[in-house]
Design a protein around this nucleic acid. Structure first.
Lengths: 371, 371
DNA sequence: AACGCCTTCTGAACCGTTACGGTTCCAGAC
DNA sequence: GTCTGGAACCGTAACGGTTCAGAAGGCGTT
């Protein structure tokens, strides 16, 4: 197998047509509509193309004319290492890719990492639509995407008027988790959460920061916790919330350490992700705390490692999430998208999974206060 | 934040120019070469663009004119689930993505799974180059890629004249591993290998199949084993080689079971991948065989799980491999590519890692035969 | 002989942009 | 008062296709 000889200048459909003495239309038809010309002529066209080293119609020129690129873009404002290492992100990515494969569409990963302030990559991407994942509310790349006259689906966050969205009902899911912890009797809790904004803040997240968080899902989950616990008399402003910028197990561990050092009275640690919870679990073991006897730990996401660890968590179908987003973008339901305000929203089912890391608090004396 | 009102027909650079009473060139310059026009006019252009809902120059038209798509394609003839689950594939993918991110280039995953006989996706991808990974010698998508007048880099396999390649020296690496096993004294060995061809064959791979394997790296690794062991008097045709189509730990386990059932005399199991070796390890434990006392097991790749398991293996830098391939494609070294036969080849270093799964065979009587 | 129909092929418009090689204008030098 | 040089802007010609409305010719029907 060897590559065709590159002629002085690449052959084009026009030069091929000239060589054959037929019109460009005919050559085009030879590739795209075989029924529009005689088999004999088609054979000749293809044969001559081979001889001239003509590689077939140029995809870009075709895209310009047909207004179809045959690919969708994925906007992910994260380091690639995150996308390829985090189980949740990977599941979502796989789901999107699967949807693309189903419809024979390419999936273009856009280079829009945190260090990249250059929005032009979004403007330069020749794609038929965008999936947006794991992006803060105020990301400049996102507004670049929204300017483009192509359909867009946002996964999880942010929630933007008129733009399709796929995601779980975070508020309901976290409320269910909070209720579980409340019903077990915990009133002294701590929270570990993921990045709330683009500016790094590894440490306590005060109320103000919680409220103006640029990551919608984190904000929503914290709100759900705040509401539920306030309803049972826990003053939310006194609940310690520790934030971590990076999302690794060891970050979960250091966050748990930080929280337990400052608040040893805590009986339950609610984490907004399984990764953080797994780290908390490690730290608890390191301290000789028994889980759940001494400390209840809960997660969010339902990743495989969490299941292995018996973590009490909220399971969400990450692969389905990606697949739903891809399908929404690629499928003919698109036709209605011209009607304003008709954005589609797909809400995914979540499931509260009670594992072996949650139980009643050991000391329940504090509940016998009261009137 | 809300999307701009879609006018009857999308505004174009030309209509914007008409509206402003300037030439299209000027509008183009407003976006691409701010220094070519006065700040005041530029402001007016951008302002009017906003009013008209003009989203900036169309990326596809721009690509046609500039002959740059700003993205490269990744050809991977595998199920996406493989790409996203297999640690080696994931590492390679990450490396490629990192290289793309460095240069602000998009990475387009081409839908070319095993079920997809349609080569047109390769022809329709508007990209500036291709990275090819994990593709058999005779794959039709590959020849489609090679026809395209853009640079291509192949990772690992196949080896094609005049096409750039990045990969380890599989023969040398596997020879080193074979020597290690030979030096330990093993003469009765078995081999577990990955898919040799597109047609599924879960079972023994006879010599003929080994020789006409369409996966170059597997062929090379088997050849290295055959040569080394032949040199010490082991008749290669009697060495059991068990093939698995899918590449999972449990496939490794069943392959090991199959091999050990038929050849209980085997003292060392050489696997052409860590995943298979990890499966073999499982199966050995299931049978109560102690590793390495009763059975030596070796892998290939050096994935994280293998290190954790203490596997004796060959480590290859998978992420570097992807990164090297991406860089080779994207960097200006491209200029020399017109000279025929000047394909670049990057050979990556490998390292034999002796772990705790290889040792001398327990019964060495058989060595005391001979003159 | 006129008519309609089918097959096969063509001509010209169009997709939206950027590269290229200008022209125009005006301030400042001489 | 002419010349010069740079800044600002412009017109034309691609870039490489697809598409649609027909033209030309052959053939069967009435």
């Amino acid at each position: 197998m060897s590559r065709p000889i590159r002629t002085r200048r690449q052959a084009t459909l026009a030069s091929l047509a000239a060589e054959l003495g037929v019109s460009r239309t005919t050559v085009s038809n030879a590739y795209n509509r075989p029924d529009q010309l005689s088999p004999e002529l088609r054979r000749r066209v293809l044969e001559t193309a081979r001889q001239l080293g003509y590689p077939g119609p140029d995809p870009v020129a075709r895209s310009l004319r047909t207004r179809k690129a045959g690919a969708i873009g994925l906007l992910l404002t994260e380091n690639l290492s995150y996308a390829f290492r985090d189980p949740v992100a990977l599941g979502v990515l796989e789901g999107i890719a699967l949807a693309c494969e189903d419809s024979g569409t390419g999936l273009q990963l856009l280079p829009a990492g945190p260090g990249n302030e250059d929005v032009s990559t979004v403007h330069k991407a020749g794609v038929d639509g965008f999936v947006v994942y794991s992006v803060p509310d105020d990301d400049p790349h996102l507004s670049g995407v929204l300017q483009r006259p192509v359909p867009t689906v946002i996964i999880d966050q942010p929630l933007i008027d008129g733009v399709d969205r796929v995601g779980p009902d975070d508020a309901a899911a976290m409320t269910a988790m909070a209720n579980h912890v409340v019903e077990l009797g915990h009133r002294s809790i701590g929270v570990l959460c993921m990045r709330l904004s683009q500016d790094r803040n590894d440490g306590p997240a005060p109320l103000s920061r919680q409220h103006q968080a640029h990551y919608h899902t984190q904000r929503t989950r914290l709100n759900a916790l705040a509401t539920t616990f306030s309803n049972v008399g826990v003053e939310w402003s006194t609940v310690p919330v520790i934030e971590r910028f990076d999302h690794t197990v060891s970050d979960g561990a250091t966050a748990a350490a930080e929280l337990l050092d400052a608040n040893p009275e805590v009986t339950a640690l609610i984490c907004t992700s399984d990764i953080l919870a797994l780290g908390a679990l490690e730290e608890a073991h390191r301290r000789g705390l028994r889980v759940p006897a001494d400390l209840t730990i809960t997660g969010f996401d339902g990743i495989a490692d969490a299941q292995r660890a018996g973590l009490t968590t909220v399971h969400q179908p990450v692969q389905d999430k990606g697949h739903a987003a891809g399908s929404l973008l690629l499928n003919p339901a698109r036709k209605t998208s011209t009607v304003p305000g008709s954005a589609q929203v797909i809400t995914l089912d979540t499931e509260l999974k009670i594992g072996t890391t949650s139980a009643q608090p050991r000391t329940t004396e504090q509940h016998w206060f009261g009137p």
